[in-house]
Design a protein around this nucleic acid. Structure first.
Lengths: 343, 343
DNA sequence: GCCTGAATAGACAACGTTCTCTGTGGGTGT
DNA sequence: ACACCCACAGAGAACGTTGTCTATTCAGGC
């Protein structure tokens, strides 16, 4: 049987309350008594019951981390930041996946409400439609009532009156910078691979792509903004078809690095060289981007700082008068996969 | 304020016990009463308090997942399996990192003991010394007393009398197969990059490397078994020095894919081509191994099955008469980075 | 020698569930 | 008409903590 505070008290010859005070350290206990209690705890190999403690207190000292898929390199690095900061703040870290099923997302947030997590961090882009937004607003309020804080990490804010913390990064700015880079290299027929109408992340990236063209007085060819998921297989199929249909394209801006892996494969399979024949770039700067063939030019996101900031802001929300919206910067990681326009 | 079972009971005009019974579903409640209660729950947006429930029950319906670093691709995929299976079994998933600090490992396991997790899954290799083993044995017993199960995932068993579940993979067999593959391609001066004396994983891989030589009546050159950590930077520095010191080497078997990325970089920087001048192989088959330059020949590990099996075995340990030790197979993933011996 | 106040320790009531007893009606069998 | 059982619902005690309130002791000041 697992010993409780009473067993320790009995063995030390004191009352349970005294043991609790030794545990907490927030109340005067005589040196001799403390020693007796500590000895009893050691002898019984006692550990507190976290559930009982949480039941008494207001919170479970836990941070929940919700992603669509733990294996995504993007998520793994945000998770790293979350875990680091949570540990530093004396919190444990719960992980849940949604696999992009909206109902599952709902269910998982209810689970976290049951757990009375201090913060519930939703990582990754969200959908753009109104119904989804409304649901998020309701969840934010429900969590707020339960004493938790909803944190949106990597997606835009819901509105000022919604009790949620938002930690975003400059999605559009990164796409703008990358597109400008390609334009500066002389490319004019640039494809964007992986647009998705109703999702916040690809939409912001397409916006940056367009804006970079417009600022140079150019109009992006609508035929070159290609819809598709953030997967390797879409990158492969999409690029293969594109290269057949539009051999005049000289650069492909992939919506994510994972898409870029597929694009690079398609380029190789088409007998073309990168970057000599066609430039390929990505977005995210995943850990192995520098090891691809060729090393991938991409947009770097401060992944782990995103996670750390999420936890930090959520837990100290009263002391941040600056508000609950932070937008971190992105920057270009220029490597070998994008070069000047071939002639 | 967050509503409790009493508030629901009051609103529905029944006793708290009845509400609990509607919640549990394991006791007859009249149809009309059930409807009243469910309506009250909906109106108050009630969710149970997981801590209170766990306090009553024997366990917190939680699985803990302990790794040295969440960002490692190996870990991410085991985590995926763990999370999948935990969800399927109605458990939540706690994540902790140790960053390879033994004291932190200790502290984290105590934290899990406090949480009364159903299973505590320790992922990745361990140290080989006696003191460490003894400590693990004590932890296994302590967790067993607390009603939890220690699971060792990706490291060898502690002994028959220790209450722990072990889910391992054929570490040595994979190294044996890979080395045999290289030998069959004609290579005779093969380096092993990333041995570490006191750690179980590299030790097993070196063992397979040696055995493959011996079975062909060959003796591996001790100078070619190079000590080093499982990092990209070691791979780079180690391979750079090796290629300078021993230009006669024709193949480099990297202890992990991450090491291989560094090795590949060093090979490129030395002006050599892979696999034409020197073959390079890895171990782990991380997700992007196929996207490296060239696509990496490596040993594939059933990562997520490792995680799933860990949870499955730990939670149903009474119904597995077969014992609490499972060893999963590994297989070669032959790609482009290893070729026949150049002449 | 008595009062005051610090320092310390115990008793007891929460926290929100679930489980085990006890009812309490109303239907059935004889 | 009586006993009996069944289906249901309530009362109350846990689970292991922590916080509040009260009781004891002892030193010091008058």
């Amino acid at each position: 049987m697992r010993p409780g505070i009473k067993d320790v008290a009995a063995r030390a010859g004191v009352s349970p309350a005294t043991v609790s005070r030794v545990l907490g350290g927030t109340y005067p206990v005589a040196q001799a008594t403390r020693a007796k209690v500590q000895r009893a705890m050691r002898e019984l190999d006692y550990v507190v019951n976290a559930q009982a403690r949480a039941l008494k207190g207001a919170t479970s000292k836990t941070v929940a981390f919700i992603v669509s898929d733990v294996t995504g390199p993007f998520f793994a690095h945000v998770a790293d930041g979350v875990e680091q900061q949570a540990t530093a703040e004396g919190r444990l870290c719960l992980v849940c996946t949604t696999h992009d099923e909206p109902e599952r997302e709902l269910a998982v947030i209810d689970l976290m409400r049951e757990q009375r997590a201090d913060a519930v961090i939703l990582v990754g882009g969200g959908q753009e439609d109104h119904a989804y937004r409304e649901r998020m607003v309701r969840l934010a309020r429900a969590l707020d009532d339960a004493g938790s804080r909803l944190v949106l990490c990597g997606r835009p804010p819901l509105g000022d009156d919604v009790p949620a913390t938002v930690v975003d990064y400059d999605n559009e700015g990164g796409a703008f910078a990358m597109t400008s880079h390609l334009l500066a290299l002389g490319h004019r027929r640039i494809a964007f691979m992986g647009a998705q109408e109703n999702l916040t992340t690809p939409t912001a990236r397409v916006r940056g792509f367009r804006r970079a063209h417009h600022e140079r007085g150019l109009e992006p060819d609508p035929e070159l903004v290609i819809e598709g998921e953030f997967t390797r297989s879409f990158g492969y199929a999409g690029a293969r078809d594109l290269l057949r249909r539009r051999p005049d394209v000289t650069a492909i801006f992939s919506a994510t690095d994972v898409v870029a892996t597929g694009v690079l494969q398609a380029v190789r399979d088409a007998g073309l060289r990168c970057p000599d024949d066609v430039s390929v770039t990505g977005y995210d700067d995943i850990p192995f981007a520098a090891d691809f063939a060729p090393a991938l030019t991409t947009v770097s996101i401060p992944h782990s700082e995103l996670g750390r900031a999420a936890v930090r802001l959520a837990l100290h929300r009263d002391s941040y008068s600056t508000g609950q919206y932070v937008k971190l910067g992105t920057h270009l990681a220029v490597r070998d996969s994008a070069g000047p326009l071939p002639h």
